[in-house]
């Protein structure tokens, strides 16, 4: 027994010595990818990004001939996973799937373990879903956004709007609406968009600034009434819903969006190749139908995305500051 253990120890020791001496071989862009690629998704399975990240990963797997794995690292509104991804190897085998949340986070969290603009390099915004103003028709009589604002002004603090949680784009879209229209609405946070929709349908809350993806089907079913789309253009998913400008609140634009970032320092060839592959994947038929069903559009890529991220951080920051939204 004793000798066995000693032999084992000796073996371990020599193994240790041998691999310490040898350095890792550098990554070559020519052969990339020669092993599976990981997309760090900072939300739990079944959460917001999954509906876009999973189909995209499946399409990329087909194109690249290497599996693209989604690594769900949920927690702390997506900031936990972002912090982990920021420290990942920059060898081109780890990418980060971020969202609008990450441009809100810098202004509502006291401290973050990463810097979205420094630790990551934007590749592409893969999906943008506009928010839509929806009301429960049994609770709110308003037939148009104008009527809603009139009612809200006549009854300050009476109307309540639900959100998917403190500091989510649902919440801040509501705060943006309040600031633009000078109305007073009561915020009711939920643990996610699902429970919120449940209470909106049941009349526990009066209205919401919901993502079009989860609202579209309820709108079609006639359970909730859409008053305006928080976007510049109408959406084919709900073609007869006016844009915010058409409904009289110009500048009320808010989208839930999802994007792919590379880890800062990833070789340029690999980033370019990934950008090209994603662009190709987004043109695939299977993806088109998924995106259309959720009213999603493809967003800016590369340098445009960097500028977009910058403006988002600024805009959300102003709203969060104005409404004093904080997570401590």
């Amino acid at each position: 027994m004793q000798t066995n253990r000693r032999a084992l120890l000796a073996l371990c020791g020599s193994a240790l010595a041998s691999f310490v001496a040898i350095s890792t071989s550098p990554v070559t862009a020519q052969t990339w990818p020669d092993k599976p690629i990981t997309f760090v998704n900072p939300f739990a399975a079944g959460g917001g990004t999954d509906a876009f990240a999973r189909p995209l990963a499946a399409e990329l797997t087909k194109q690249l001939g290497q599996s693209v794995i989604i690594d769900n690292k949920g927690g702390a509104g997506g900031t936990l996973g972002a912090g982990v991804a920021a420290r990942a190897a920059k060898d081109g085998y780890t990418f980060f799937v971020g969202a609008v949340h990450h441009t809100i986070a810098p202004s509502i969290y006291a401290k973050l373990t990463y810097d979205l603009e420094k630790d990551f390099e934007p590749i592409a915004v893969v999906a943008m879903v506009p928010h839509v103003v929806v009301v429960n028709p049994a609770k709110v009589q308003a037939k148009s956004l104008k009527e809603l604002i009139e009612f809200a002004k006549a009854n300050p603090g009476k109307l309540s709007f639900g959100s998917a949680g403190n500091g989510t784009s649902h919440h801040l879209a509501g705060e943006m609406f309040k600031a633009l229209t000078k109305t007073d609405l009561q915020h009711v946070p939920y643990k996610g968009a699902g429970p919120m929709m449940q209470d909106l349908l049941g009349g526990q809350i009066d209205m919401a600034f919901d993502g079009l993806g989860s609202s579209a089907s309820q709108i079609k079913g006639g359970k909730i009434v859409p008053l305006a789309l928080a976007a510049k253009e109408r959406s084919s998913a709900v073609a007869d819903v006016p844009t915010s400008a058409e409904a009289g609140v110009a500048g009320f634009e808010a989208s839930a969006w999802y994007g792919v970032w590379a880890i800062a320092g990833t070789p340029k060839e690999i980033k370019d190749k990934m950008a090209a592959e994603i662009a190709k994947a987004l043109k695939a038929e299977s993806i088109g139908s998924v995106w259309a069903a959720q009213g999603a559009k493809i967003g800016p890529v590369g340098a445009d995305m960097a500028a977009f991220v910058k403006s988002e951080i600024e805009n959300w920051g102003k709203i969060a500051k104005g409404a004093n939204v904080k997570i401590e």
């Binding site: 509906a51 579209a216 089907s217 079609k220 069903a293």
Partner: peptide, 12 residues
């Protein structure tokens, strides 16, 4: 999510 991927709009 699976229904959406299949092009079915889940809902009422």
């Amino acid at each position: 999510g699976a229904m959406i991927i299949q092009g079915i709009q889940p809902g009422p």
